[in-house]
Amino acid sequence: MFNAGPADLTAPERPLRVTRAVRRVFDGRSDTALDPELRIFLSDMVRPYGLALREDLLTAGVGHSYGEMAAPLIAEATSADEPVDVLVLAFAMHDLRLGRATSVYLSNLCPGGPMAFAVCDQGSAAAFTALRLIREYSRSGACRRALLLVLEQSVLHYEPAGPAEIPARHAGVALLCDDAGGAALSGARQHADVAVGQVATLLAEDLGALTAGRTDVTLILGGGLAALADAGLAERVRIAPEGQPYTGVWWELAGALDHDDPGLTVFADHDPNLRYLCVSALDTVAARQEQPA
């Protein structure tokens, strides 16, 4: 049971740390793809928008569910002796279990039975928001250990209601956050209403502020910033894999953390449709220095 008073920010802040990162691509499909209820719900949902169902995809029975994708990520990222207090699921494009409170379902699978919720309708910014919310719950003393899940599946059973990149594969990333060890979250910035033409300048400013002249910096750019790969923003630049518009930057981050190289990792993405620029930083050096002797 999550039991909190007003946010208490009087305690000295300890930076949130990412202690474990897991990433996975999923094959196959969810059984939900064959559920007749899927067609009924989708038909009702798209009707007011005048959109057509994709009969080919409904007939093929393809697509995945975030509950099924997240279960193995949770199993790999957590352990029974490390109870999780807060679980946040971030996604942009919905999955096939349209009526399921998936994060609550996942709470039941996660050690500690954490308070859980989902963040969405924010494109690629949703996962950055989710990480920030974990920091706020941690900062106010409401949570010691938290799990961030970033998920995308690749099937939309109707004509999209507007311009948006559809993922090319089913993918997920889990980041376990704790109050000791790992890489410390040393910055989390979100800018709203940022046009494509403003991105390079704003990103350079944030990068300068977050790195403060350090040279041990790796910059990870999400798909929305791939055009800046050769802009000379940092000495080491990694680009999120194509086809993962919402998990890509987190996928690459998980890979970087897995190498456990000391240094500052800045990761960023821009959503061109919803116009968010998000820039965050994880500092392995700072985290190591802050660990008790």
């Binding site: 798209v46 942009a92 919905h94 409170a101 939309l156 507007g162």
Partner: peptide, 14 residues
């Protein structure tokens, strides 16, 4: 309350 309520990427919030 409803986990999914509008077709993607319609976004009444924004």
């Amino acid at each position: 309350g409803m986990p999914v309520a509008v077709p993607y990427p319609a976004n009444p919030l924004h």
